[in-house]
Structures are given as C-alpha cells and as structure tokens.
Design a protein around this nucleic acid. Structure first.
Length: 417
RNA sequence: GUGGGCGUAGCUCAGCUGGUAGAGCACCCGGUUGUGGUCCGGGAUGUCGCGGGUUCGACCCCCGUCGCUCACCCCA
C-alpha cells in the first residue's frame, strides 16, 4: 500500500460516518435546547495562546502540541483543546461586552502529538460548550446537564458523572504546600517528584498501584476549601440533585489543564479501556484575565466524539445507517439514460432523495443495488415507458407497483410516499 | 519517551511438530427474453508487511526493519 493515513488519526467513512454525524447532531441539539449559540474558531492559533491559556507546565503544552512556523516566521499551533481559542474569540470580538453569560458551543478536530491508543488519537473530534461571564452554581449544573442530556439522547447509560471542587486560588495554594511536603516525605522516584513539583494535584491521577498506595493518606483539597468555595460546591450538588442527575463526588478528581478552578467534572464510561473519560470540564476563574480580557469567570466542557462513539458501540447501541433513497431510476436502454438523470434531478428539486443506476449493470444487478441502499421505490425506464409516457413505481418493501405518469412523477411520489 | 501483543484475500480469521496457501462474509457473473431481498451454481482476488539468515525446502525457525495495536505518563 503506497499511502496510508498519518499515525493515530481516526477516519469515518460510510456507513459508520453516518453514526458520527448522528452523534454530532444530538450534541448540537442539546446545546441549542439550552440556548447555546454556535461558534467556529480557527483550527490553528498563535502558539502563545495555548502556552498561556492551557498552562506552561502542562503535558499538553510541554510535549503534545503540533507546533510549526508559518512562512512569516510566526509560531503556530494546531489547537489541542477548545477553550483557549473560544475565550480568545470572545475577548477579541467583544462578546463579553454584551449580555452575560456568553453561551457558545463548538465542534471540530483537535490535535495532540501523543502516542495513540484506544480512544486517544492525534487528531480527534471534540464537541464543547462554554458559558462565560456569570459565576453561578446553577450555571455549573446547567453545563453538566447539557452533556448529560446529550448522552441520554444517544442512549448511553453505563457511565458515571464524577465531580469535585478545586476551590479558589487561596485554598489551592495552602493545600498545594501541604500536599507537596507530604509527597516529598513519601520517597517517590525522581520523575514522580519532578512532576509533583509542577502540579502536585496530578499525583492523584497516577494509575500505578504503588503510587496510589502511598498517597492513600495524602491531604485532600476538600479539607482546605474556603467556606465560600464549599457553599458553591454544595449548591452545585443540590442543583444536580434537583435535576435528578446522578453524580459521584471524587475528591481525587483532577484535570490536566491548569486553568481549572472550582467545580470540575468528568463523565467516565464503564466499558471503555484506559481512556474512559467521554466528557470533562469545569470552571475557570482566571482564564479570561490571563488571555487579556476582563476578570470574568467561565465554565465549560469538552466532549470526545470519537470516545462517545466507542462508548455507544460498547453498550451495543444499535446505530442505523441513516442514508436512504426515495427513488432509484434504472434506465435499460440508451435513450432512457438521458432521461433518467433528468428525472432524478427533478425529483431532487421536489425534495426527494433520488439516484440513478449509472453504468451498465443490467436490470437484475441494478435491482440488487437498489435493495442494498435502502430504496423506497424503483422506476425502470425502458422503451415501453418512453413511448407510453408512463411507468410503474415499484415499492421495495412489499413489491407492490403503482402506475405513474413520467411527466408528473414528483407529484405522484408525493401522493404515495 | 518506555513496555507488551500482532502483521496471511476488501473484511474477520484458519494454516498440525517447516514441504511454496484456505474458510466465512463481502464483491462480480449466471439460474433464458424487462424487476430485488432467500436459495443454488460459477468466478476474480494474495510478492503470507519488508529485508536478510538457517534449511534440500519457510507463512511457519532466527535477526533486523517498517507498520498496526494495547498499556504507562497525560488527556477528549
């Protein structure tokens, strides 16, 4: 094979591509139902935006970005996540100077230069929403509810929502020192310590058993939360209760991006491999300011479309191919060929899905083709039809035939479909 | 960056302790002249990832290489 797709990218082609479309549509539907508006930002941005926004010490920034120089010598990076670009756009276009909160959703490809594995790709598709400018626990709950509703529309059931509060800056700083000294005393290997020095919270995410054992008694952030943070977190939880959205408080839940503060959450699917987080997000208090905007809080989530599809498949959710053909026209003489496409185009103008048996497969072969592509009606065009000006529409579901006039085919279709 | 597994027809895979390749599905044609789904018959398809070595002989053994895949770190 001469060419193959670059390592670690996912491709969606028929029929699976129609499930992919379906997932995106349900996600959009859920966001629109909550009055989020569509935003489309560039796939590449100034490298500095991500470095500042996502955080200089994060793995994403230090080793996972696709960065290159453009012809003008500027450093450009393919977006590794969605929030930084959206916030940049909100600031640049002054959306935060109108009514608040600004509620937007986005969808598209993202890029990270990592070693691929199940559910993790170098180019992956993410859907996300952001609500900027209002710091209200009810909004935190709403954001979670949007993802939850979407997953329910898709038929997913075997997942859990984990939530935690990372508190405000002050609470975090005190905890950080305490946790760091705990880690320093626990004699870890050098690599683990180095990582912890950058962001000690990450140690909670370490999957190695011996590490988990050692941090069993590590000080948790929840013990350091300011009373204000605690109250907000309680409100988020009681809001979720009222919405009857089940969740699990996971005090060790941390996220790999530096901008998160306050409420954080993850939707974790139970039947996926190591990469089981199908949606993750949280509140970010300092991000707007960091990127040069007003000091406004925001909250949002990123939702993995590839992983969602995998999750649906793991639950055995039946995904039907949505493509169908209303009318399939089979010309069986040379003179009929010219007319066939013309009639098909007319049907399309009339709002129907119409296709033609191109090439020379013969009648039988064309009938088989019609059968395979979920065709409602077939019209055979031969010399008889051309001379009489009428034909028989065959309904594939039961074989019944309807005689129709060729010149008023669209109307006839409307009448029987 | 580190470690494990795997590379045989379009797809999923079989191939016993080494004797130069098979199944199912899919695909195409046919079962008489212009009507599909089932059934029956027939057919095409592989440099057995690539390179080297051992051997009379390698898909099967050894080495290298490339690719895929899963996992670690981390994330959607």
């Amino acid at each position: 094979m001469k060419y193959q797709a670059p390592k670690g990218v996912s491709e969606y082609f028929p029929p699976r591509s129609s499930w992919f479309e379906h997932v995106i549509w349900k996600l959009e539907e859920s966001a629109l139902a909550a009055n989020y508006r569509f935003i489309e930002t560039p796939i590449f941005e100034d490298t500095e935006l991500f470095a500042r926004g996502v955080g200089e010490t994060t793995d994403v920034v230090t080793k996972e970005m696709y960065t290159f120089e453009d012809r003008g010598g500027r450093s450009i990076t393919l977006r590794p996540e969605g929030t930084a670009g959206v916030i940049r756009s909100i600031i640049e276009n002054g959306l935060d100077r109108g009514q608040l909160p600004v509620k937007v959703f986005y969808s598209g490809p993202f890029f990270r230069a990592e070693r691929p594995q199940a559910g993790r790709y170098r180019q992956f598709f993410q859907f996300g929403i952001e609500a900027v400018g209002v710091d209200d626990p009810a909004l935190d709950a709403e954001v979670i509810s949007v993802a939850h509703l979407a997953f329910q529309k898709l038929g997913l059931t075997d997942y859990q929502i984990q939530i935690n509060s990372l508190g405000d800056k002050e609470s975090r700083n005190i905890h950080r020192e305490d946790l760091l000294s705990f880690i320093r005393k626990a004699n870890f290997d050098q690599e683990t310590i180095d990582r912890a020095e950058k962001n000690p919270l990450r140690i909670f995410d370490d999957k190695r058993g011996e590490v988990q054992e050692k941090i069993k008694n590590a000080p948790l952030l929840s013990q350091f939360l300011s009373s204000e943070s605690k109250i907000k977190f309680e409100q988020v939880k009681s809001n979720l209760d009222k919405l009857q959205i089940p969740y699990l408080v996971n005090e060790r839940l941390v996220r790999g991006l530096d901008y998160y503060t306050g409420t954080t959450f993850e939707f974790v699917h139970n039947r996926l491999g190591a990469q089981a987080t199908i949606c993750g997000g949280g509140r970010y208090d300092g991000l707007m300011e960091t990127l040069g905007g007003q000091a406004l809080s925001g909250i949002g989530f990123g939702l993995g479309i590839d992983r969602t599809l995998l999750a649906m498949e793991s639950e055995g959710i039946e995904l039907k191919d949505r493509q169908y053909v209303d009318i399939y026209i089979i010309p069986i003489s040379d003179t009929a060929k010219n007319l066939a496409l013309e009639m098909a185009v007319n049907c399309r103008r009339g709002g129907f899905v119409a296709d033609v048996a191109f090439g020379n497969r013969g009648l039988k072969g064309s009938m088989k083709a019609a059968d395979k592509m979920a065709t409602h009606f077939v019209l055979v065009l031969g010399d008889d039809e051309l001379s009489s000006g009428s034909g028989r529409l065959k309904r594939m579901s039961d074989g019944e035939e309807f005689s129709v006039s060729l010149t008023s085919l669209v109307d006839e279709l409307r009448a029987i479909l």
